[in-house]
Design a protein around this nucleic acid. Structure first.
Lengths: 143, 143
DNA sequence: TTATATCCGACTCTATTGATCGGAGATAAA
DNA sequence: TTTATCTCCGATCAATAGAGTCGGATATAA
């Protein structure tokens, strides 16, 4: 299945929230979880990952939480997916994977890899501000 | 994870084989399974699905098997994925899904849907002959 | 009639994803 | 200095989807 995980959805929603409520300075896990109806502990891990990858900054203690480090126009969808789900792989076989019993006979590997990189390139052109803004019509013309 | 299933891989490899060995007239499950090292029963179902969807034609009884109905240039990658995996959904939420507890607050749904349709459109421009041929450089310029 | 195919549903096993739990470390405020 | 409220992090459990297996039915060339 070619599907994004819930975690990625939650990450995008959180970034959206943080950019929308910049005035709050810090947005904590609890409030984001409550507003979007996300399990708090799960969201906590996602935000920790986003912090570790440098998208947001964490502030510990009471009144603590997270703030956006980068502007949504400087974050791409591809980056967020990779931060949460790891490297994007439409094609399942990895270069030199000896556990794949098809590799030797497989003729479709390299063409599919090019399709994959095309899609990855596309995802890397989509900045988050285009996702969280209302005017999204231009998305289709991007690439 | 944005990943194609093994079933889709097997389907593409089978179509590849059938187009390559057109001289055989019929290619049976056993021989394809042996050549590509695919579990026979699993491959059988995939081929049945491809037959049901009109990509290949089945011939029952001994000396039976499958033959390509369409030319690889008339089959797109998107079509094969849909035949095997069902409708392509990068975005997990479906129009009017009441079980999703985020729908009301979710602001990212519609923009993501446009990205999805862009990718689907791209996959529908990739014909199988481009995947099974050696010259795949032009793939990147397609869309 | 027999051997070899497709056909098809039910089932098991495994991997991934989604969610929960327990507790440690940081820090602002009382 | 204590306390309440955060982030942090590993371990664990549950749900779902993917991959593969099994048993038996039907078709048909030899």
């Amino acid at each position: 299945m070619l599907k994004l995980t819930k975690k990625t959805d939650y990450a995008l929603m959180s970034i959206n929230y943080m950019s929308y409520r910049k005035d709050l300075f810090v947005a904590n896990t609890r409030s984001i979880a409550e507003i979007y109806n996300i399990p708090r502990e799960l969201l906590a891990k996602i935000l920790q990952k986003l912090a570790k990858e440098g998208f947001i900054e964490s502030q510990n203690g009471p009144k603590g939480g997270y703030t956006l480090l980068k502007d949504p126009s400087e974050i791409t969808l591809g980056e967020v997916i990779r931060a949460i789900e790891g490297p994007i792989q439409i094609v399942r076989c990895i270069e030199g994977d000896s556990t794949c019993s098809q590799t030797e006979q497989c003729t479709i590997q390299s063409p599919l890899r090019k399709i994959e990189s095309h899609i990855v390139d596309y995802l890397d052109t989509i900045t988050i501000d285009k996702i969280i803004s209302e005017t999204t019509d231009e998305l289709l013309e991007v690439n």
